[in-house]
Amino acid sequence: MLSAILIMALGAVVLGAALGYAAIRFRVEGNPLVEKIDAILPQTQCGQCGYPGCKPYAEAIAEGEEINRCPPGGQEGVTKLADLLGREVKPLDIEERPKQTACIDEQRCIGCTLCIQACPVDAIVGAARQMHTVVSTLCTGCELCVTPCPVECIRMETIHEKIDNWKWKYPVFEMKRVA
């Protein structure tokens, strides 16, 4: 009996010591998982997930946060995250919307620079008391500039289909009726 306890204790001590030593000796900074999650997120930096940007949300997911908090990523993004993390696919907690881009009404803009400060990707150009405008190719459609505007001159416009971004549709054909 005593020998059994001794053996088990000895094993625990030896293995624990080895593991403890290894944990210090082979410590690695950074979590590669966060990078992988971040690569799936759409990088709109919109904060709709409740985190200030995509990277913080990626870190939160790696710590166990829900994966369905990212509306710009869409259901497809949730599926990809579920695949990567081996979790259940969940429906998005907010409704998915078509892609948008911000548009400044230049007649009403007073040049207050508040939207410039709010834009997470520096997609608004302008200077104090000068008209501002959105660089639409860089705009991620995050809507963060809409609320700061004191004269409500920023609106979100749905991106319409053009020949350049037109997609062939999934072929839908009648299948032959059997029986």
Partner: peptide, 13 residues
Amino acid sequence: AIVQLTEMIIQKS
């Protein structure tokens, strides 16, 4: 223990 050790060593090396 072996699994944990292996993981740490691989991650580092």
